[in-house]
Write a protein that binds this DNA or RNA. Structure first.
Lengths: 185, 185
DNA sequence: GTTCCTGCAAATACTTTGCAGGGAC
DNA sequence: GTCCCTGCAAAGTATTTGCAGGAAC
């Protein structure tokens, strides 16, 4: 349901994802290859087995952008493999998390969502609509620069990672005349 | 792992607290008065009743700093009022949230924690040391300004609240010669 | 009195776990 | 063959809800 457009430096991603909607597919396939490689390495290093279920789950997960809930992912997986249980998805996502390929996130609605965490990809932050739950992703170098400065001032710290979440309301929810909700386009 | 103390403009709090420990009590009692006033206003405006249970729950909650889980809070409440049910605490915290006095937070362990959110107090963000868990609080207007801009660009959103956490390492942990850890001073 | 609250227990929602059968190596 | 894995159902948590009695106004 959404778009994906680059808007320039300082404002990069624009990948709206809806709670119940389907996140868009990742574009670069060589990235996928690399990620897949990390996965098989992980399996090998831990003497874990390759199974049809895992293959499908991982394949579906890695080609997503944005955040997936267990339900979303299971639905996708079942299109390729009928009869896959929730437990398997939960268990596989745990492995993905342990292997560093997935990052669990809580947006406050009680469900855990997962996103592909690619060290080599750009980090992104989130804007969550308090009205409808729409989650937009963004990147902002200026903010990151200020964060680094701030940390330096606070005692010479170096920022290793960070988490920034903005919770807001869209023009429509604010009751602005003519305002529309990005989730409706 | 949490805390606070004043250090000056732009770089404010600095006070330690533990996740599983008991948050410290708030210092300024006139603040408490003001918060309490907001609560009674909220009750009045919504034709809600003042009950003994609510009184105790709200009193206990408002005098805390840091984050409390429902269990923590209920335990405190029960010291003053035996026989208060979980449901009442949940319901009251929901009212506190609706009134703007409480903010729910998820740290990823499945439990929701709440903290006092005081509009008139300055909002602060956190810098967490990955080495020792020290948590510094800070404020940065420039960053907030950029956040507002970002949200506006992402579809005209207005930021209602945000969460920013920086995870970093101190000079000492980085192995810098002469570098020291703020937690040791 | 009327309306709102409360505790309790039952109900939900999400996630984890036990187990017997099946698949990967 | 030996383990590891899977689906299912049961078990766990955290949180919400229905209800009858009780308190606040």
């Amino acid at each position: 349901m959404l778009l994906d457009s680059n808007v320039g430096p300082g404002l990069d991603l624009f990948v709206p994802t809806h709670r119940t909607g389907s996140p868009p597919l990742a574009s670069a396939s060589h990235d996928l290859e690399r990620l897949r490689g990390r996965w098989t390495d992980y399996l090998r290093r831990n003497s874990l087995k390759t199974t049809q279920q895992r293959e499908v789950i991982v394949a579906q997960f890695l080609q997503l952008q944005g955040h997936v809930s267990i339900d979303d992912l299971l639905a996708r997986v079942r299109k390729h493999q009928k009869r896959v249980g929730y437990a398997t998805v939960y268990r596989t996502l745990k492995l993905l998390t342990a292997s560093g390929l997935a990052t669990p996130r809580q947006f406050g609605d009680g469900q855990t969502r997962y996103e592909v965490s690619d060290d080599e990809a750009h980090h992104h932050d989130h804007l969550i609509c308090l009205q409808c739950g729409l989650i937009l992703e963004f990147e902002n170098e200026e903010i990151e620069k200020l964060q680094d400065q701030m940390a330096a001032q606070l005692g010479g710290f170096k920022v290793v990672r960070h988490k920034l979440e903005l919770y807001g309301v869209c023009p429509k929810a604010m009751g602005q005349k003519g305002g529309y909700c990005p989730n409706e386009s």
